[in-house]
Write a protein that binds this DNA or RNA. Sequence first.
RNA 1: GGGGAAGUGGCGGAAUGGCAGACGCAGCCGCCUCAAAAGCGGCCGAGGCAACUCAUGUGGGUUCGAGUCCCACCUUCCCCA
Length: 857
Amino acid sequence: MPILHAKRGSGKRAATPAVGGLAFVAYAMQMAAAYDFQDIEQRWRERWERDGIAVARPDATREKYYVLEMLPYPSGDLHVGHAKNYTIGDAIARSMRMLGYNVLHPMGWDAFGLPAENAAIQRGIAPATWTLSNIANMQRQLRLMGTSYDWSREIATCTPEYYRWNQWLFLRLYERGLAYKREAPVNWCPKDATVLANEQVIDGCCWRCNTPVQRRNLSQWFLRITEFAERLLDGLEGLEGWPERTRAMQRNWIGKSEGAQFSFAIEGVSERIDVFTTRVDTVYGVTFLALAPEHPVVARIKELIAPESAAAIDRFTESLRSKSELERTSLMEKQGLFTGAYAIHPLSGARVPIWVTNYVLAEYGTGAVMGVPAHDERDFDFARKHDLQILRVIVPTGSSVPAEAPIETAFVDDGTLIESGAFSGMASAEARRAIATEFQRREIGKATTTYRLRDWLVSRQRYWGTPIPIVYCNDCGEVPVPDEQLPILLPPDAPITGEGSPLARLPSFIETTCPRCGGPARRESDTMDTFFESSWYYLRYLDPQNETAPWARDAADAWMNVDQYIGGSEHAVLHLLYSRFFYKFFHDCGWVSGADEPFARLFHQGMLLSNGEKMSKSRGNVVGIDETAKKNGVDAMRLFLLYVTPPEDTSDWTDEGITGRVRFVNRVWRACEPLAARARSVDVRTLPVCTTPEEKALVRAVHLAARSLVEETLTRRFHYNTTIARLDETINALTAAIGTSPDAAATLYAVHAVPLLLAPFAPHIADELWSLYGYDRSVHLEAALAPQDAALALDEITLVVQVNGKVRARIACAPSIGEADAFALAQADPAVRGYLDGKELRKRIYVPGKLVNFVVG
RNA sequence: GGGGAAGUGGCGGAAUGGCAGACGCAGCCGCCUCAAAAGCGGCCGAGGCAACUCAUGUGGGUUCGAGUCCCACCUUCCCCA
């Protein structure tokens, strides 16, 4: 007898011998060669591409479903960590297709950005060349993963066909006053040699390279996202399909605070100092004013005071100049210097000393803070350190703390006002309204709302990005480039050295003529933040070839909004906030209709570790797609990524773990392939006749898996780990059935059903088996197996009998058993009887088909 | 300090308020084999000879019944200050 010990990935499949029954099974178990995933997976990838199984067209007869993964930056090479994200999206896309939805599942490239310039500097490769070759490789790898993207809609943001619409959209923002240039203190990353938006500064460091950012005063382009602050905040309420923590992060970032703004007069100076506070009820407790050293009034004060005092202020200011925001507000000790000047309290008339401090920032609020040490911890610390007066003006409501009692800590809660003139005795909330009204009456202030959100700084002093379509003319000033002159192409010959803006040093680019007067003019040399193009790319997929508009309104009407968006939580504020801003703008322009939110549901996949550690080149634990596709197969990889944890959890790639799924794929193959010919005639819509409990259980396992697939998909929970566990049970039951009754209708039914259940997760083996069952059409174009109640129903259930909540017996009975019969049966059970005899029966609980509980005393 | 998420065997995890630990990994024992690998079958929270008892971070509560709901606390992670 020939023994076929085929190595995985090499040998050919053994021919199915024409023997039946147990002898055949023994032969099949022994003889079936290991599944040759390499050949089979490649063959199906090519077939899907040829057949266009993922190409999406509008179809009024089916409900649309737009599932989207955040578009990747083409860094060069994918590893299994990336694969997790795309596998989740692909499992959803394939499941929804089989459930009858018209699925749109596109992919593209966030192709502008610094790494391409760094490659140019370090290795002399043109950014475009580097980027395009990375895209080619990553596209190959995404295909290798068996993903079902509609590649006919692919976009790369670095192509003129795409970025001309960046420029076009910028001009529309400009026309509406939502794009403007202004000088402001901005975040500067010295390593990347460019400015950064506030959202791109994480803990005081550059989000990309972790270099501490510096502050510089520069003239820069901003987008007026602050105008949308209230709508961005309100919109979060409706986003119930978003993770709560992401909504909370956006809420935090927008940072709405309601309070009052009012001004202090200064002794001997005509200017006034504006302050904003949420606690205007504590205003009688003000004992100092804290100013940012950069505050404009500081210059006026210096004129009033002794030269040596003014010099001290200058030294203090100088010492803070290079310090980052984080250092100044959080890391450094609270420092301050009395200026020698006094303000006048607007209500009490008291003299209030004016200090400059490190913990008040010029760019936030008004750059000045009223110091109320008794009711603010930071002010309290500052007052203690500098021996400033501490005045108690709020006491807990209902208590009677004398104003003179020593103050050990700041009382920061609301309470009742004391020592506050006409407002004494009021509750904090009431006093806030009353005092704001009083300020308004005196015309020195009013109730206002402020936001932490700043305008979005979008200009970058870099090459590999979209040129900003503005020219500067000596006569006409700032002039927008007319639409018909778009795109302004990125010149291929800019000197990329890492020093200075490349475009600024390229006369052939900079020198131009004014579109308005025809005179000599200079082009803007800054390019756009790459978050600009990723804020609207999901609309370009809908109409990628459009040459007259970024997208047509009817394309947006057909597909928007994105039904399910999938990506990392690191973009919780950045990309997801900018996109929401853009979409609201588009909505206002009438370019999209319906809800003014782009992403109806959002899913953050969890991180993937490698053997318990973060995957990184320096740790040497990066598991590549190519490597694992070759070693374990793509189906096993996909199954593992979905199986190891729920998709939103952090999971760990381990050799043992992937081995488990490789085994599973082989078990599927050994179970189904030898029976393929016989399973051909099965119709999975018709339940088979079962003659034994085991057969019934096998068919039930199939339908439990089918139900899990449908439920996890339609409830949008996507816990496919549980669905795959049900598939494990199905295969276990099937393997056992093959051992006893390979010809039973139930066995062949299960064999036939398996690829339908496996298709979203292990698409290749599913289609291979499906074709062996005689189908010409891909399994991915079939309808999902509909779970049937008749298959799920049990002939017999186990009724749990409890006495006082403890399980005392288990009784087999019919699932339809009624309450009276259940009690009678339970009470008659000898084990239960022992717990009931001689006790008073106080209560009986019956949970139909599940449980009886006797409460005795 | 404020807000968000989470804590279940050796490990990853499962469980509409109703038999805790499905499924997988690791481990142990068998079968097969000259042997090994692969495969197949069984065991696998703790204590106890057993009947049983204990067990889902800790302590309370609601309930006939709590991993699940409520309160307080502890720990971890994440955001904001």
